[in-house]
Each structure stands twice: as structure tokens, then as C-alpha cells.
Nucleic acid binder design. Structure first.
Lengths: 245, 245
DNA sequence: GGGGAGAGATGCCGC
DNA sequence: GCGGCATTTCTCCCC
């Protein structure tokens, strides 16, 4: 197979909306929201049926270059090299991949109508606290959850046993400084809006950084250690045990 | 090729640290930082030489499932299906892919020592302002940039023509509420630390949301419209014109 | 390794 | 479309 043959294969696969995968030696240039250049090396390129493109180096999690869906792609010979040009005019983004050698190439029509189901998100966490307010503290009465108010998007909001307005901000990971400023923003807006000086702020997360805890205490807010729920956990634990994970 | 043959191919390729790509019909279960399940459909699976794994649906930008580098993978027959199990014990993460059919398979040893060069980042922007302080305002004298101080990571910091301490926070995109709270945090810490009441805060970004502008003004801070630089822009514009982009 | 912050962040939902 | 915010965010840098 010569490089020019791959140009034909690519053009055919693109018109048929197939998902394309190839490994190649290439160099890359990108222009759009920023500019980037990547010298010659081996990469895996994936062009999806929705015309998104991903470029992956042989290591690392994230793609080194990419273009969003609805990008147009052309493959033409440029001297002795194969030039794969991707452009997205509405987004003013351009990607040039100069391919020197193809290690392997495949394309196939792929069908997938499934949507992923995820548990253990921050929303699950705020629902758990809404349904089990004693996890925050005795006497806490939630009145709304995950609600877009004019004060902002507050996770859980209610009153404590004294009747004091209480705002709960959930984080599924270790709470940091920005989590505290986020809570602070809600509390301040609530105080101004209601014309009151006493609103409690509670940060609910599995843990909190030392600096965040300090800022939290400086502002008279509180931390409550709470883990996000994992509804599918039992299934996987059983699986793990059975199969020697 | 039978499914059991792919188990052998996978095992061989994994021991040789090859990068593996396959398209298949499969269902997926993940347990780790969260839990997820994805029903049967066609996907592209990439296992990199650093033992990271990515699972992509035929559409969309982001992987639907993935595991970080240094994950261990095994492929064994489970009845009539091929079970690809990935586990990362240090991170307590597990991924099970039950494969019913393989559409294509390839593996190859890939080599890539290149590092991407990016221009137009926030760091470029703060450097531009440091070197061209008149872009902020007449008389502004920067004294540090991109510096980790005990007040936080301040982009540009200096004095205005009156000698007043001035903190500049850069955003390469549209500045939002969190950008304002970030600036506010720096200004407040600076005031406490220096024991002064007057510190100016300037938010430099291409644009700013309406709510953020309001909060900015409420706190007596200022907005300066600045675009991030694109050093490679000329090259790409020329390329685009020449090649009919 | 933890903490802090940017990213070509992406993606979702709500107005 | 903008806006606000979570993400199995990821990645980098610095302490």
C-alpha cells in the first residue's frame, strides 16, 4: 500500500460515515482557540462517524489534538507525504496532519444507540443529603435541592433546628478554595436578598484541603465529611470477589 | 478469526507494549471514582503502550470510559464472549468490557518522543501584559508575573501611577463569576498581609459575563478587555490562504 | 504526594 | 445562544 492509496481509502470511508482508525508517523499543526505544533512521531488517529477527530500519542490519557464533531476532512498527497486537513469554519479551527508513513489503517460502520448510566455524581450526593438530612445534622430541614435560584445554583438549601437559613454546597472530591468561595458567594447573595445577617454555610465533601478549611473557618462556615453514594458498588464488589480482582 | 484468537493477540501485544486498537460490539461496566454501566453497542477501544485504555463511542469528543496509565489488562473468554478486564489497584478502579464481536483489530509498536508546543495560553497573555504594561493602563508598573506567592498564584502584580498595589488576573476566555471571586481572594489576602485597605484588582480578559461585571463593580474592581496573543497566527493564516482553507 | 490553577478544557442543563 | 457549573475532569507546576 502506498500513501496515495490511503488518501482514496480515507475519502471513501468519510463519505460512508465510517469510523476510521489509523496509526501513523506524522507531524501536526493546529490553529483555532490557540495555536500548537507537534513534531514528527507515531500517533493514533480516530475519525468518528460524526466527523470528530482525535489524535493520540502512544502514552497519556488525553488526546494531544482534536476537533469537535461536524469538522470537514480532506486527504490529499502533498509531495511525497499524505496531508490530512481538518477544518471547522464556524469555529475557525484548523488542523493539519502531515503523514509520512501509515502503520495500520481500518474503517468500519459502527452503530451505538446506548447512553451511559453513571452513579456517584454530585447530584446523587445532594439527593442523598436531601433524603437523609440527618447526615448534615440533627434538625436540618431541606426545602430545595439542585435548584437554579436567582442566588445561583444551590445544591441543598433549608433551615436548621433553630430555623436559621442554611446553604449546603456538595463536592464529590476534596473541597478546595474555590469550593469555599462558591459557598461564600451563595451565602452573601442570600443575606443581601433576604435582608438578614445570619445565614449558615455548610460544605459537604469527603475531605477538604487545609487552606480551604482555614478560609471556611475564617468565614464562619462549617465542614461536614460526607462521601458520595455509589449505588452500583455492591454489584462490583461481588464481581471483584468472585473473579479475583 | 474467533473471539478466543483475539484473546491471544491481545495478550501478546500487551506483553510487547504495543499500542492496540480494536472496534467491537460490547457492553461495559466501570467502578472506581464513580460507577457506570453502558449497554451493548459498537465502540473503538485503544490500549496505549503505557497501559492507559480509552473507550470511544462512534460519536462525541470525550471517551465514554477510560483508565489511567499503569492499569493492568487481561483478556479471557467468558463463555461465548471475550472479557477484557482492566484494573488499577492503587486507584481502586475497575473496568469490565464484555466483547461479543470484533469488527477490526490492530496493534503496533509506536514511538513518539515529541512534546507539543502551544501558544495563546493564559501564561502567554500574562507575559504579554508584563512586557507591555501600557495595555493595562498608563503608568502601570508590573513587578512580578505568574508567581506563586503566599497570597496565591497571581498572574501579574505591580503598582499603578499613584503607587497603589494592583493585582491583575488574566483569563483567555470570557471571564465569569469564579474569575471575580478568584481575584477577590487575592486582593483580600494582599490587604490583610500588607495591612493596607487600598489594593486595586483588574480582570483582564477578552470579555466578561454580565453577572461577573456586576459583581466586579460591586467590589470596586475593574475590567480591561484584552485578547490572548497567538504567536503562530501569521503562519497559519498564510497557510490557510494559500491552500484555500 | 498534596495543593492550587489553567485547559484549544468538555458536556449538561436552564433560561 | 449565553451562563453557570460538574467532570471517573486532565494536566502542569510548585511546595
Amino acid at each position: 500500500m502506498q500513501l496515495s492509496d490511503y488518501a482514496t481509502l480515507l475519502a471513501d470511508a468519510l463519505t460512508r460515515n465510517e469510523t476510521i482508525v489509523l496509526a501513523c508517523t506524522c507531524s501536526i499543526r493546529y490553529s483555532g482557540r490557540a495555536e500548537s505544533h507537534l513534531g514528527r512521531g507515531d500517533r493514533v488517529i480516530v475519525i468518528k462517524s460524526d466527523k470528530a477527530i482525535l489524535v493520540h500519542q502512544p502514552t497519556g490519557n488525553a488526546p494531544i489534538n482534536y476537533m469537535k464533531p461536524d469538522t470537514s476532512h480532506t486527504a490529499v498527497m502533498d509531495g511525497s507525504k499524505l496531508l490530512l486537513r481538518s477544518k471547522n469554519l464556524p469555529l475557525k479551527e484548523f488542523l493539519d496532519i502531515t503523514i509520512e508513513r501509515v502503520h495500520f489503517y481500518n474503517s468500519h460502520k459502527l452503530e451505538d444507540g446506548q447512553t451511559i448510566v453513571v452513579a456517584g455524581t454530585e447530584e446523587d450526593m445532594s439527593n442523598m443529603l436531601y433524603d437523609n438530612p440527618e447526615m448534615i445534622e440533627e434538625g436540618f430541614k431541606p426545602v430545595s435541592r439542585e435548584e437554579q435560584t436567582k442566588y445561583g445554583f444551590i445544591d441543598v438549601f433549608g433551615t436548621d433546628k433553630e430555623g436559621t437559613l442554611t446553604i449546603v454546597e456538595c463536592k464529590r472530591y476534596c473541597a478546595d478554595l474555590s469550593a469555599v468561595t462558591q459557598l461564600r458567594r451563595y451565602v452573601e447573595k442570600m443575606m443581601v436578598s433576604k435582608g438578614i445577617t445570619k445565614v449558615r454555610g455548610i460544605l459537604a465533601a469527603p475531605k477538604i484541603t487545609e487552606n480551604a478549611r482555614k478560609m471556611l473557618e475564617d468565614w464562619g462556615f462549617e465542614f461536614k465529611s460526607v462521601k458520595p453514594p455509589k449505588y452500583l458498588e455492591e454489584f462490583d464488589k461481588k464481581q471483584s470477589t468472585l473473579d479475583g480482582f
